[in-house]
Design a protein around this nucleic acid. Structure first.
Lengths: 227, 227
DNA sequence: ACCTGAACACCGTTCAAGT
DNA sequence: ACCTGAACACCGTTCAAGT
């Protein structure tokens, strides 16, 4: 169950011995995960990087799970640069791009989300804005919810399936695996090894798929309106 | 780097003391992951369930990673029921549905893929068949590779982001989180809480998104052919 | 040749003790 | 009141020893 972000004691000044706040600790944890993956965040290492005893962390957070909630909040600062302008499709595209970049900046969000749903108010802003745009574009409630789920699946799915390795490493690895296949059993993969290797890594592919997803949402809406 | 599925010794008969094969062990590991998640698979527990010593496993697999490769193969039996029939769009849809069901049957595949790319020949069959269908439909190499990546992202992303909890639990949790939001700040989410909760859980949503993805692929192909 | 217990360097968290 | 070392029940894997 999701735990509330309550402070252990409600005191304005840093009465604590180390002068640390929950937010500062969460930020340090976020940096650790972004740099080394979710497995890289251990209570021992986090405490070590802050120069405090491991058990001191449990004075700020009841468990590692509660710490992860704070990490999510730390990574979910509102997107200041987003302003709703232009046709609904372009508004959606821009919002999705901004949130995709956030996920690239903070792989921690993706890795945590793969373990459990993220339902913090700050994170739900993304859904609220998408629904607002679709509502204004004339989408019904069910239609809008379906489109939101698809868009959410695409942006998180893309980020989740993008490797932590460099683009170059990934392409080489894909190409190497294809090169090992018997061409007569895998003719198309063999013939298009280059194109497939390119498509499986790199951020330019994100935009291509996003446009296809929006094509699909738009097409269904057009049929709905027409029918 | 991906390790080869080589047997430690090439002997036809089960000369081994326990009479166990790599395949049998991999199958047991697959069952463990499917039932309890990737974290549920530990060398100690797997050995225990097989009634052998932990270290005996290392006589069959050089490392846990090599064991996971065998688990992937065990879960990737070819889809016997798939026959290419009808228009390309329906062929794609059916192939994707079959593979989605495979992922639902074997969450192990999704959980392993989130840790590293899956590049085993048996798994690459999926890509080969998609490329074959698209090629026959007149897609160019780059266009086909882009469509493959999108479809792959959708099917794995959808499976990866689907919770391990029951559909009912998930819906209740989503609805509860929305109910906690201040309605004046989240008006659309509040108004469509029901539709959103439904859309975020349950397999019927998979088909909706799949059709939108195929709409997008089809629309882009139509423009390509027309232009 | 095949199998395996003990040991090592890790985890998250409980508990009891320090200041 | 705040902090923390020791300890517990785990991990994957190395090593040396059993049959």
């Amino acid at each position: 169950m999701p735990s509330q972000p309550r402070t252990v004691k409600h005191q304005p000044g840093p009465r604590r011995r180390h002068g640390l706040t929950r937010e500062q600790i969460a930020k340090a944890a976020l940096d650790l995960i972004d740099a080394e993956g979710l497995d890289g965040l251990t209570m021992q290492r986090l405490a070590g990087s802050l120069g405090i005893g491991t058990m001191t962390l449990y004075g700020y957070f009841r468990s590692k799970d509660e710490l992860l909630d704070a990490v999510i909040d730390a990574a979910s600062e509102p997107e200041g640069s987003f302003t709703r302008q232009g046709p609904w499709r372009e508004q959606l595209a821009e919002l999705v791009r901004l949130n995709y970049r956030r996920l690239v900046r903070h792989p921690a969000l993706v890795q945590i989300r793969l373990r459990r749903p993220i339902l913090r108010p700050r994170s739900l802003r993304f859904g609220e804005t998408i629904l607002a745009i679709l509502h204004e574009a004339g989408f019904g409630a069910e239609e809008a919810a379906g489109a939101f789920r698809l868009i959410f699946t695409y942006v998180f799915g893309y980020a989740a399936l993008s490797p932590q390795q460099t683009v170059e490493e990934q392409r080489r690895e894909t190409a190497a695996a294809i090169a090992l296949l018997p061409p007569e059993q895998y003719p198309h993969l063999t013939d298009t090894a280059n194109e497939v290797s390119m498509a499986m890594a790199g951020e330019n592919q994100f935009e291509y798929g996003l446009q296809r997803v929006l094509d699909g949402v738009e097409a269904a809406h057009g049929r709905q309106v027409a029918g």
